[in-house]
Amino acid sequence: MSDANVYAVKTLTSKEYFAPGHRACSGCGQAVAVRMVQKALGRNIVMASATGCMEVVSSPFPQSSWEVPWIHVAFENAAAVASGIEAGLKAQRRKGKIDGRKITVVAMAGDGGTADIGLQALSGALERGHDFLYVCYDNEAYMNTGVQRSSATPFGAVTTTSPAGRVNSGQLTWKKNMMRITAAHDIPYAATASPSHPLDLVEKVKKGMETEGPAYLHVLSPCPPGWGIAAEDSIQLARLAVETGIFPLYEIDKGKHRITMNLEKLVPVKQYLKKQGRFRRLSPEMMEEIQERVCKEWQELREKAEQIDPSAGADEALSKEQEGETEAAKIFRVKAGAPV
């Protein structure tokens, strides 16, 4: 966990399970995240995908970017389709119709397919306790249909259905907290992850796979056209989301909260918000409101994490160890998101 070796990212497999030639936008943060998740998942899996950006860019008949068995059925039912795959494989395994090896079942959907239209199917699958990993790629709006707001769109963000109007400007509500919702199902594992922190992300995918029963992974997925950012900035924005505390990296492992990317000090949210076209119309008051809320939620998260795991001080020890590192290694450690 602690050895943030400069070259650690190369421990990821060189095999591509999400093949190139997909039609995702140039600089798509979600495509980066999917590539990494697939590398962590490996080949011994079956996937069910919701309708959405990744489905559309990856599977125009007669082509597919998927190197693993993969099915798309509809928008709101990825969790239910995955439930069926899990049940089908289980029954066939028990009856000796297929061999006994464990096959990881994975569902993937965007924030709309998870927090809005797919919430019921997800809740049902989590409650029934299917052994599967659900990955939500959160780009914070309905990007596939042209950037309409979802319940995961952050406060203040302008989308085509939360436009900058004369009376109201941008999203008027706060982002739905899927981590709390999924955790309330008492599932054994839930975590957030970001493509800016590949090692942390990969570790969480692996934990999710090893978990018996349902696991939930919420992955931030910067979207250049939807967020109004340059294509090259996707990863930088994902990193800033983590460092500002807007998208903290943590996990809830059998009920225990643990922050996996500790932040000595939060970077002001302004630095994250001002880089994005969707927040261009944010008033100073709204910006302040966001900052307050982020600080409050970060504090709450720390309290939850500390309450259960009082092993504070570990961070300090780690940073001492790293004193001798080179400048490049330091930059790298931040960029690769070596877990604390």
Partner: peptide, 14 residues
């Protein structure tokens, strides 16, 4: 069922 072969977007040079 319009089943597709894996990894075949490699034919689509972006």
């Amino acid at each position: 069922g319009c089943v597709v072969q894996p990894g075949s977007t490699r034919d689509n040079l972006t």
